[in-house]
Simulated scan of single mutants.
Amino acid sequence: MLTDTHCHLADPVLNPNLPAIFADAAQAGVCRFIVPATQRSDFDAVLALARHPHVHIALGIHPWFAEAAADADLACLGTLLQQHPRALVGEIGLDFYGKQQTAAQRARQNELLCAQLELAEQHRRPVILHNLKATAAIVAAIRQTGFTQGGIAHAFSGSLEEARLLIGCGLKIGIGSLLLNPTAQKARRAAAELPLAHIMLETDSPFMLKNQTNTPANVRKIAETVATLRGIALTEIAAQTEQNVAQLLAFQTA
């Protein structure tokens, strides 16, 4: 069995076709899914997916929506985390890509991240972290808030040194669809060289694939690529990454 630890099944591109998406995933051996929210307006759609027995959800506000996020949105998130004790916190994080960002915009992202890390710590939930060109700031935010619940550094595309910093903060490293691009050298090196105990598999569907809709079934291709890069069997990749997912979700039965 394999798990897609990051798929946006509430997205309008995927949501109307869930029976077929689940069937295709099952045929590929992908039988569990973690679905994050990105803003308050999709909390309800993500919550609705929790009725599926193999779907685990996360609630949070993505850094792309930091400027529009209000205190009421954070209050809503806190209430929903209280009401849904099996929900992770995510997709949260920082996105510092692009020279057009102002210092004030980055500061607002950081403020929102810290507030959500504090909620996650309060409710003892792991997080799903978006990180683009912001590893040092994310590590600083984790240390500043005293966050200790772990989670996933999603869609990793950085250096081994960055990965080790994030692992030192208790995070697993999300290896995703970028790996299917033969020129993605940093992602491929991370998949090949990081300890397997610190790796998660994900698609970030429906995104990340050029000119086609990504789906959770592609986790199998990602797992096969990791196995090839490491020179080990697919069964070994599946066994260890599923153990990693079980550790991530252990809070649900604590």
Rank of each mutant, 00 (worst) to 15 (best):
P53H: 09
A134I: 06
Q100G: 03
A192N: 04
I57S: 04
A50G: 06
G98D: 05
T241N: 01
D24W: 00
L165M: 13
N110P: 00
A192S: 14
A191S: 10
A87V: 06
A191P: 08
T253L: 15
F96N: 04
S41I: 04
H154Q: 03
R40A: 13
T183C: 10
Q82M: 11
A20Q: 15
W64K: 06
T228Q: 13
L201Q: 11
H62S: 02
H123R: 14
L160R: 06
R124D: 07
I222M: 07
K210A: 11
A246I: 03
A103T: 04
R188L: 10
A25Y: 02
H123L: 13
L77Y: 13
A25F: 10
I237N: 02
P182M: 10
P206I: 13
D204N: 14
Q144H: 14
P182H: 04
V127I: 14
L9E: 06
L180C: 07
R164T: 05
A137T: 00
R189A: 15
G78Q: 12
A45C: 04
L166K: 10
L249S: 12
H54C: 05
A238W: 00
N244G: 08
P216D: 10
E202I: 12
A87C: 12
Q83P: 02
T241V: 10
H6D: 06
A37E: 01
E91H: 09
T135F: 02
K133V: 09
L201Y: 13
R40W: 02
L18G: 13
F33P: 01
G170K: 14
L80M: 12
I152N: 07
G151L: 06
A37Q: 03
T241D: 02
F251Y: 15
T5E: 02
H56I: 03
Q105P: 03
D4K: 11
A107M: 08
A254T: 10
N218T: 08
I142G: 01
L88W: 03
R108C: 07
G93V: 03
V35F: 01
V219N: 03
A23L: 12
A120M: 05
R108W: 08
Q243C: 07
T228L: 11
G60T: 01
L112W: 00
